[in-house]
Structures are given as structure tokens and as C-alpha cells.
């Protein structure tokens, strides 16, 4: 890890024609026993791109996302982040990387979870500062100061000393995002970040995500928020039964796709969200 572990400011602009994509997924497959949950997935995410993964429940979206930072082990194919193979050595036959090597990979890849996963025994500030101390090796005072700036960025400076139980779901998710961006990741993964939220709290989280996208953060987002996918994503991948059934710009997938499963999915979505 040399150039990869350098920190990159969030405000960087898109590097055109960059040779190495941020994420490159080639022929990835995964099975749970005899159940094939991912089949022959190909997907490329360039720097500063926002890619949304959509599709019905059980289609493999979350599993694919979790393979990118190796929280889920993929069996076949390869995933590369900034050119570096995820989870395995480059030898043939490949072997699983040690936990230490996985840590080097994960420090540059942030993840936001559906259930927020804030640590309930720490304040909002401590939640954000903890990884800076444990992973980046910053001293406590510097970590706290940096964490405070990150909370300010998600509009929660006033809640620094609150415990998660005292925060709304939307606030908790924004703290969770602050916890990730404090680590200055090169890539952020979002696993249904608004699915556990009351409808009126979804907007504040999506707004923070829009701001991140506008700042040039590379993002892979599993979501059921079609509005976000349509307006913010550069690319949309529609997954169905472990395959990418449709891929392209939001316009191509939402309006021009002739794939019947996509049309059926969108129809159901519209019916469910109209009243």
C-alpha cells in the first residue's frame, strides 16, 4: 500500500480518462451452499462516480456491495479497488488475505449500514473519533477536533455529546456517515442507508449523500430510493436473481430499458408509492 493509502481531499474533481478504475468487478460469483446468490457480475466504477444498485429483495445487491470490502467472501472472479485485488493474494492458486492486509484495504473504503451500527456506549463525537484513534493512530485531542468538524459537515455539531439513543434515526445515520468520512475514504459503500428510517427522516440523509456526491466522492449505493438513483446516480445497475439484468445511466435504465423485469419492478414501485 503506497499511493493507495494517501488521503485524498473530498473536494477533488473527476480525473478524466483515469487508467485505473476505483472499483473493477469481473466475473464475480458467490454461492451459499447450492444457492447461487451472485452470478458472473461485471461492473466498473470510475473515480467520483455514483453507482446505484437497485432490484428486488434477494436479488444480491447487498451481497455484492458487501463483497466489495470483503465483509462477504466472493468465490469466483475478482474485485479490484484502485487496481488492488480484494480479499485474495495475487498468486495462483490465490489464498485469502490475512486480517492485517484486509485492514489496509478497508481503511480506504467506508461503509454505511442500514441499521446505522453506531456504538451505543459512545457519544456521537466519540463514535466519529474512535476509528481515528484506533485505526489512524491519531491522538485523542486531534481526533476529537477532526470528529467535531465532520459532525459539523453533516449538520450535527450541536449533538456531539449526545448518545445514539437520544438521536433520531436520521441523525444517527448522519453520525454514521460522519464516522466514515472522517477516515477520508477513497470509496464509500451504502447498504440501504434510508431503509430503516421513518419517511420524514429520509430526506436529511439523502441530502448529506447528495452533498458528498457533489464533492466528488465515489459511491456505490444499494437503495430503494428510485428518486435518488434517478437524480444523483451516474450509473444504475439493476440486479435480479444474482445477475445484472440492466446497466446504464438512470435514463437508460428507468426510461429506455426494454428488459421486462426492470419494467415490472418499476411498475410495482410506482404502484406502491402512489396513493
Amino acid at each position: 500500500m503506497t499511493a493507495v493509502s494517501q488521503t485524498v481531499p473530498l473536494s477533488r474533481t473527476t480525473v478524466q480518462g483515469d487508467a485505473v478504475p476505483m472499483v473493477s468487478i469481473r466475473g464475480v460469483g458467490k454461492s451459499f451452499g447450492t444457492n447461487e446468490v451472485l452470478r458472473d457480475i461485471d461492473l466498473t466504477v470510475s473515480k467520483s462516480e455514483v453507482v446505484c444498485l437497485i432490484g428486488p429483495s434477494g436479488s444480491g445487491k447487498s451481497t455484492l456491495l458487501r463483497c466489495i470490502n470483503f465483509l462477504e467472501v466472493y468465490d469466483r472472479g475478482e474485485i479490484r479497488i484502485e487496481g488492488k485485488l480484494v480479499g485474495y493474494s495475487e498468486d495462483t492458486p490465490r489464498r485469502r488475505l490475512s486480517n492485517r492486509d484486509l485492514r489496509d484495504l478497508r481503511r480506504n473504503v467506508g461503509m454505511v449500514f442500514q441499521q446505522f451500527n453506531l456504538w451505543p456506549h459512545m457519544t456521537a463525537l466519540e463514535n466519529v473519533a474512535e476509528a481515528l484513534v484506533q485505526v489512524r493512530g491519531m491522538d485523542k485531542a486531534a481526533a476529537s477536533a477532526h470528529a467535531r468538524r465532520m459532525l459539523d459537515r453533516v449538520g450535527l455539531a450541536a449533538k456531539a455529546d449526545s448518545y445514539p439513543a437520544r438521536l433520531s434515526g436520521g441523525q444517527q445515520q448522519r453520525v454514521a456517515i460522519a464516522r466514515v468520512i472522517a477516515m477520508e475514504p477513497h470509496l464509500m459503500l451504502f447498504d440501504e442507508p434510508t431503509s430503516a428510517l421513518d419517511p420524514e427522516l429520509v430526506g436529511e440523509v439523502l441530502q448529506v449523500m447528495r452533498d458528498l456526491a457533489a464533492d466528488g466522492m465515489t459511491m456505490v449505493v444499494v437503495t430503494h430510493e428510485m428518486g435518488f438513483a434517478a437524480n444523483v446516480a451516474d450509473k444504475v445497475a439493476f440486479l435480479d436473481r444474482g445477475r445484472i439484468a440492466a446497466f446504464g445511466t438512470p435514463r437508460e435504465v428507468f426510461h429506455e430499458s426494454t428488459e421486462p423485469r426492470v419494467q415490472q419492478f418499476l411498475q410495482t414501485y410506482h404502484e406502491r408509492n402512489s396513493f
Binding site: 470490502n69 486480517n99 485492514r103 478497508r106 485505526v135
Partner: peptide
Amino acid sequence: VPHGQSEAALALGFPG
């Protein structure tokens, strides 16, 4: 303790 608690730390690169 919910599994997500250690998973969040793992994803951030915490040592075991």
C-alpha cells in the same frame, strides 16, 4: 450485542 456492532468496526479497519 448485535453483529453490526463489530461489523462497523471491521469495515472501518479496526484491529481485532
